[in-house]
Design a protein around this nucleic acid. Structure first.
Length: 278
DNA sequence: CCGAACCCCTGACGGC
DNA sequence: TGCCGTCAGGGGTTCG
């Protein structure tokens, strides 16, 4: 469910509140994608640092006098984080609450029905770029180095559809299924176009569209199609601005042609057959 | 190395 | 109501 804007909105909604907190208790529910990788007691007494983000991963540093590391968290398809200030002890956990970090500032709780999400301990001081999970990630969309040239270089030589190349996340991170569809619409590019056939000027447009749509979504607090909420339970509103995603059969907002839905790499793609060209 | 298929898991929804 | 197929905002792993 969460793409970069939702993850970043989540991060911003609790980073300040939890920074400097002391870990009092850690409770695990059902297993997530991978084991935590550290004994929960090992984090007790640790101090929470500044929460950061890489792609759709959150990094929550926890330092102790003798050891230091952090929690690398991913929300998968159905995960969300909630931070409740001033919780004195662990409240009862629901069937989908799989990770609770109780601190002296409040409770950080990961709820994830499908359990595609993850919380993994990494014994690193800062967000570890070499961590296996992060090693092959592309540039951040707001990194000044992410531009049309970078995108064109990343797409070159690839025989997959441009939509799938965007989703792969090794050129630029953060655009998931919604925003990849939206960016391709904004750039006027048919999602089925082979990646290597995207011209230089179109790569420029696409880079701007990717960055633009993610920025807009961020500003709108993310997209809430069904259940996204930030760490304080606030929903996003970008769904109001969506041009193609989830709009199969409905008229294109620009030209009235019915939006089409196709399947690429086992995932739905929505596009306007009139506005988006090969 | 690349690309495609498969898989993890649960819930919601539409059709019969 | 109940059952079944389909779909879902991600992405690592495996196979050809």
């Amino acid at each position: 469910m969460p793409e970069l804007p939702e993850v970043e909105v989540t991060r911003r909604s609790f980073a300040q509140a939890i920074e400097g907190a002391t870990v009092l208790q850690l409770r695990l529910g059902k297993p997530l994608r991978w084991p935590l990788g550290v004994a929960p007691e090992g984090l007790l007494g640790g101090r929470v640092g500044a929460v950061s983000r890489r792609g759709k991963y959150l990094w929550l540093p926890v330092s102790k006098p003798l050891e230091t590391g952090g929690l690398l968290m991913h929300l998968g398809m159905s995960g969300s984080l909630a931070f409740t200030a001033g919780v004195p002890s662990l409240p009862a956990a629901g069937p989908h609450d799989h990770f609770d970090l109780l601190t002296d500032r409040g409770l950080l709780r990961l709820t994830d029905p499908r359990r595609f999400g993850a919380v993994v301990w990494s014994p690193a001081q800062a967000l570890p770029p070499a961590a296996p999970l992060l090693a092959s990630l592309g540039l951040e969309p707001f990194d000044p180095r992410f531009n049309g040239e970078h995108l064109r270089a990343g797409l070159s030589g690839r025989r997959v559809a441009v939509k799938q190349a965007l989703l792969a996340g090794d050129i630029v991170v953060g655009a998931g299924n919604i925003y990849a569809c939206e960016a391709l619409f904004l750039a006027g590019i048919d999602p089925r176009l082979m990646a290597m056939k995207v011209s230089r000027p179109r790569a420029e447009r696409l880079a701007l569209a990717v960055r633009g749509v993610l920025a807009q979504a961020l500003e709108a607090g993310g997209t809430t199609l069904r259940d996204f909420k930030d760490a304080h339970g606030v929903a996003g509103s970008f769904q109001m601005q969506v041009q193609v995603y989830g709009r199969e059969g409905q008229p294109c907002r620009r030209c009235d042609t019915p939006i089409r839905r196709i399947v690429q790499g086992q995932r739905s793609t929505f596009f306007c057959p009139q506005c988006q060209k090969k």
